[in-house]
Design a protein around this nucleic acid. Sequence first.
DNA 1: CGCTAAAATGTAAATGTTTACATTCAAATT
DNA 2: AATTTGAATGTAAACATTTACATTTTAGCG
Lengths: 347, 347
Amino acid sequence: MLNTPVTSKQPHSVPTIKDVAKAAGCSTATVSRALATPEKVSDATRKRVNQAIAQVGYSPNIAARNLRRAESKTIVALLPDISNPFFSEIISGMEDVAHQAGYQILIGDCEHDPARAEAYFRLLSTNQADGIVLLTSEIPRALVKQADKQADFPLVMACEFFSDIDLPLIAIDNHQASAQAIDYLVSLGHQRIATLSGPAHNPICQERNRGYRDTLAAHQLSNEARIAEGNFGFRSGYQQGLALLEGKTPRPTAIFCHSDEMAVGVLKAARQLGISVPDQLSVVGFDNIGLSEYCDPELTTISQPRNEIGQQAMQLLLHLLRGEQPIRHQTLSSHLIVRKSTGRLKP
Amino acid sequence: MLNTPVTSKQPHSVPTIKDVAKAAGCSTATVSRALATPEKVSDATRKRVNQAIAQVGYSPNIAARNLRRAESKTIVALLPDISNPFFSEIISGMEDVAHQAGYQILIGDCEHDPARAEAYFRLLSTNQADGIVLLTSEIPRALVKQADKQADFPLVMACEFFSDIDLPLIAIDNHQASAQAIDYLVSLGHQRIATLSGPAHNPICQERNRGYRDTLAAHQLSNEARIAEGNFGFRSGYQQGLALLEGKTPRPTAIFCHSDEMAVGVLKAARQLGISVPDQLSVVGFDNIGLSEYCDPELTTISQPRNEIGQQAMQLLLHLLRGEQPIRHQTLSSHLIVRKSTGRLKP
DNA sequence: CGCTAAAATGTAAATGTTTACATTCAAATT
DNA sequence: AATTTGAATGTAAACATTTACATTTTAGCG
């Protein structure tokens, strides 16, 4: 009779910690310790255990571990729309530190559907997730309110926030970023500066619009304020761009957009109307996505430190999970990147 | 003493199936059955159980369920790079049918790092995932080979594939799609048609390049074949575009790109060199991402039914998981969308 | 060498489900 | 009325870990 390399009785049965224990000549407890807290096990046994693990081809059953430890090592990243490229680098940043700490990221695409968001929140109570990073304010407020009540509900926000609910937050100063863009446009000589905002109910857009208004006021341009509303996407940029540029009211000479996609939409609208950018119209975007260097003209835009936002948000959440009392609010700095879509008017 | 609404002894302890059983006056088995197989339980008890569930605020502990059932209801979607917008709609399609069937999707971003891919494959053996949809061929071949050996390893591919390993696959006919693009360019009168390919070792690119060569040959243009290699991104499109357009060899009059991002990169290169598109150069992209309608000029491109690819891939995987013998290969149809970046030469 | 403390290991309970098997009960059949 | 059947329910084992507690071993020290 030949010796089979694997010594399990049942053919095809997945090796468990018991098999390892048997092979290493110790108890399952020791194997478990050798894995979780190697320093509590003698060098000799640790070595034997590791050999045994390799020999039988063991990998721990995570469901059992999760059950026993009452955790899942999974973090949900809740976003409004997975197709928005703005989020991918944030996710990358989150993954970096999450993996480092032995956590997984589950990407939750809400698709603007409240039921989806609710389903993802429910993962917490069923032990399928340990925490949530919330990257959208477009979810049922009830969910958040409830979470906020529990003292240490593992929830942090990144980029977006709620104006009336104070949650741990990693974000840039949207008011200031907006002000910087407007200041810059004014410095180029622009007076009729319009804003193409994201959804009006979105707090970050409200922030940016306050920054816009405040800065216009500071330059005595308040009565030039004009805000159009889009949804961050190409199409709404194009449509609202057309509306802004072909209306009967005196045409704006600059448009500040709350996303790069909308800015590119505005570029298309301007092209279609024979308005040259930047000679007759300046356009500023927001986010500095990859595209902004490759559109025509290259886009002046506000850059957010996306990777860092993701990293810090995850750090913050991990602190929360460890029961620590971290700094609940971090403001990261954005900066204006000047490219070719802005300039002085050339009549 | 006041009655608390929740009748648990331990404060804050999460209610389990036992609490429900107690409240409903039945055994845990019955509660479990009422949830999993309601038809095996009398109407009266089912009602009592549901009331009890609502009353104690029970939701099942999924880790325990997964342990007992030896499944995770989680599917891994493995992709090369999450920031490529091409994938987001495929993911959406996958999620639609996955959620329908009670499965979750875990997005695995490999970032071209073999270790990452391996980690995601390992989820299968640790019971953290039930199956994999593989959207990249850029992973260690050993992993796939090994999976292929096991008769019913729950793995399907979508879009991408391996030339030498026969796995279940949902994809378009890349050879034909490529041929269609080239035929169209030839019909416009182009003779010097270059291809800006994705990575040369990528089977779908090889397929497309075969389609390119075969079609040139069919038109007696074989000696005009010229293939540059990029990596699907904007930057490589721009760089290779410059190289193709400013070289000493006679300049191509059309460039067929393996991605829209690269095509937009080529547009930038052409702009920079003062080559007008489409009058002096035609450009064709691939994938029809959102951007292609908003760049200048709007991009002629090949559209893949991304949502459907995602749905079908998930369907296929679900069949596999149910132990059925599904059709292992499905070819979906792509089509050419003609916009403004292609035309006859105007000298 | 005997004693104590610390380190290493083992035993067994606990985690929350599901499900095979056993039991009960009511209705249907003789 | 006795028997059979099938449905409804209950009992308890099983899933693969972790860990509190108990026990054994080792080292240290006078």
